[in-house]
């Protein structure tokens, strides 16, 4: 896309979209939202960057090999964290039973493994949307 206005506004806006996504992810257990919503915001920002600046520039910002690694590694890390509950107590993804708290409103690091899971889901969802959009772009006409 060649429009100067669109390029300038995107360059100003994309960092704030990322910041909002990170806010939603990191506050996922004490406020509305969570890993999926915040990851979708970050993925939307990445797709906006790709549309405006082209696929080559986006490859520098977020290489596709990194996206594939994050996408596959995210869900494996999620399963690994879930297995902690299975090993220490009796069931998958147990939080309270494994000795962690249930979280206090307004306190960021307060809910045991849930913030870690939220960050993992956010990274996975963002890279999944980016991989989806790249796959559609590389498809021949």
């Amino acid at each position: 896309m060649d429009s100067l206005i669109v390029k300038t506004i995107t360059r100003l806006l994309v960092p704030f979209i990322f910041l909002y996504g990170i806010f939603i992810i990191s506050h996922g257990h004490v406020t509305p939202g969570g890993g999926f919503s915040g990851g979708a915001f970050i993925g939307g920002g990445l797709i906006l960057y790709t549309i405006v600046f082209g696929a080559k520039q986006a490859e520098k910002l977020f290489p596709s090999s990194v996206a594939e690694w994050l996408e596959s590694g995210g869900i494996l890390f999620y399963i690994a964290v879930g297995l902690v509950g299975l090993i220490t107590v009796d069931s998958f993804l147990t939080n309270i039973g494994a000795g962690f708290g249930i979280g206090t409103p307004g306190t960021l690091w307060s809910a045991g493994m849930i913030p870690i899971l939220m960050i993992t889901i956010g990274i996975k969802v963002a890279s999944t949307f980016m991989t989806l959009f790249r796959g559609l772009l590389e498809e021949p006409r």
């Binding site: 509305p32 939202g33 969570g34 919503s37 979708a40 915001f41 549309i51 949307f129 559609l136």
Partner: peptide
């Protein structure tokens, strides 16, 4: 349901339209 509203804003009117 602000949780669902956030997801709808990101997915419904953002990502789906772009795809």
């Amino acid at each position: 349901a602000p949780d669902v509203a956030l997801t709808e804003a990101a997915i419904g009117s953002g990502i789906t339209t772009l795809l």
